[in-house]
């Protein structure tokens, strides 16, 4: 098996936490893994992405070739489209609906939504809203992680929950628990979407 994932968002939105959680789970499963991150200047409110590659065989390149990503997971709607050329023909796009507008020329939401909904395989959800309802606005990235799980072959929900426990362990039991809830809420949305097709 192999799953190539592009993680997208804006610096500070927590995509590296998503990557770390998936990475922790993949290592437990003895999968081969490469995960390229963006550090440094772009982290200051700029567009950031991470290439995450899981495989049962050794992975060569740290970067995913274009048209090879099985999944684009984005915590921001416009950012989900920035890397569309990486998406494989049958790949899934899973994106947060809530825009992050820190630029003057942010395109119209309708344009963005039209582009996303014209893709053959997509899941849209408002992760910020779900996280706010859970009383933990900072967990919206983990809601997105939950929504992505059905599209990552080789990893399952139980394994991922262990990964989340590991990542948040040093922040205390309360934080672990609310992130597990966030994770399950996202997962449920994707599972329902899959059932419909």
């Amino acid at each position: 098996m192999k799953t190539d994932i592009i993680l997208a968002g804006v610096g500070g939105q927590g995509i590296l936490t998503i990557a770390t959680a998936i990475g922790a789970a993949a290592i437990k499963k003895n999968l081969y893994l490469k995960q390229a991150e963006v550090h440094g200047m772009s982290q200051r409110g700029g567009a950031v992405q991470s290439h995450l590659r899981l495989s049962s065989r050794p992975v060569a390149s740290d970067l995913i070739p274009r048209a090879h990503a099985d999944l684009i997971l984005s915590v921001e709607p416009m950012e989900s489209l920035r890397y569309l050329s990486y998406l494989s023909e049958d790949g899934w796009l899973v994106a947060n609906e809530e825009p992050y507008k820190n630029i003057d020329d942010y395109p119209g939401m309708e344009t963005i939504m039209n582009e996303i909904t014209s893709l053959p395989h997509y899941v849209l959800l408002n992760a910020d809203q779900i996280a706010r309802k859970l009383g933990s606005p900072r967990s919206s990235n983990i809601v997105m992680l939950g929504a992505a799980i059905p599209f990552i072959s080789g990893l399952d929900a139980a394994l991922m929950e262990d990964g989340i426990r590991q990542v948040f362990a040093r922040k205390g039991e309360e934080v672990v628990e609310v992130n597990l809830q966030a994770f399950r809420a996202g997962l449920q949305i994707s599972e329902e979407k899959i059932k419909k097709i």
Binding site: Q43, G45, G46, A47, A67, M78, R82, L84
Partner: peptide, 16 residues
């Protein structure tokens, strides 16, 4: 490529 990045996507450079 099966999918193309739309050309109307705005740049999002780093900022203070």
């Amino acid at each position: 490529l099966p999918h193309k990045t739309p050309d109307w996507i705005s740049r999002r450079p780093p900022m203070l």
